[in-house]
Simulated assay, not measured.
Amino acid sequence: MTTQVQPCAELLLDNQLCFALYSTSLLMTKTYKPLLQALGLTYPQYLAMLVLWENDGITVGEISARMLTDPGSLTPLLKRLESEGLLQRVRSNQDERVVQLYLTDQGRALHEQAKALPACILKASGLSLEQLASLKEELVELRSHLQQSL
């Protein structure tokens, strides 16, 4: 015998910020997928390459901090990018535990191809550039507050 739970507005799925963020993130990843397949990248690999295009020669620890992820979870992704010829992992001469990441010529060339992606995402979003910028600022602020609460 099942009993019906009285609906509570605060617990309706469509009223949850977490679900709006989660479902939007899933759809954003799906939107990127065909664009990134043309570049030979997965979405997490693309995020790593974005960081490397900004800061060639950074350490695994630095890219991990920038991507808000654990360094151990990045290692397989970085090894894959290395095997695909996009980056080179080099142990530091000063501290063998530190691994620095350097773009290869192929990794730098991929940057040129990736320049078309933001316009594709803007078009798919149906929003103006100003609306997307405002939304991003609000999400960054939310992320900052959540990070501080941990």
Rank of each mutant, 00 (worst) to 15 (best):
M1A: 14
Q4I: 09
L13T: 06
D14F: 13
Q16A: 13
Q16P: 01
L17K: 08
L21E: 10
L21Y: 07
Y22I: 01
S23P: 07
L26M: 06
T31E: 10
T31W: 00
T31P: 02
L39D: 06
G40E: 05
L41T: 02
T42P: 05
T42F: 01
Y43F: 09
P44E: 01
Q45K: 03
Y46T: 01
A48M: 07
M49I: 03
L50D: 02
W53A: 00
W53I: 06
E54G: 07
T59F: 03
T59D: 04
V60Y: 00
G61K: 06
E62D: 08
I63G: 00
R66M: 09
R66D: 11
M67T: 01
M67V: 04
M67A: 05
M67N: 04
G72V: 02
P76M: 02
L78Y: 01
L78F: 03
K79G: 02
L81M: 09
E82M: 11
S83E: 15
S83H: 15
G85Y: 02
L86I: 01
L86E: 03
L86K: 02
L87P: 01
Q88V: 15
V90C: 03
V90R: 13
V90F: 07
R91C: 12
S92R: 11
S92G: 12
S92W: 11
N93P: 14
N93F: 14
V98Q: 15
L101H: 04
Y102K: 11
T104F: 04
T104P: 10
G107M: 07
G107D: 03
R108Q: 10
E112D: 13
A114M: 08
A114H: 04
K115I: 10
K115W: 09
K115Y: 10
L117T: 13
A119F: 14
I121Y: 10
L122C: 12
L122R: 07
L122N: 00
A124Y: 13
S128Q: 02
S128E: 07
L129P: 02
L129E: 14
E130N: 13
L132F: 06
S134C: 15
L135S: 05
K136I: 06
E138H: 11
R143Q: 11
S144P: 05
H145M: 14
Q147K: 12
L150G: 09
L150M: 15
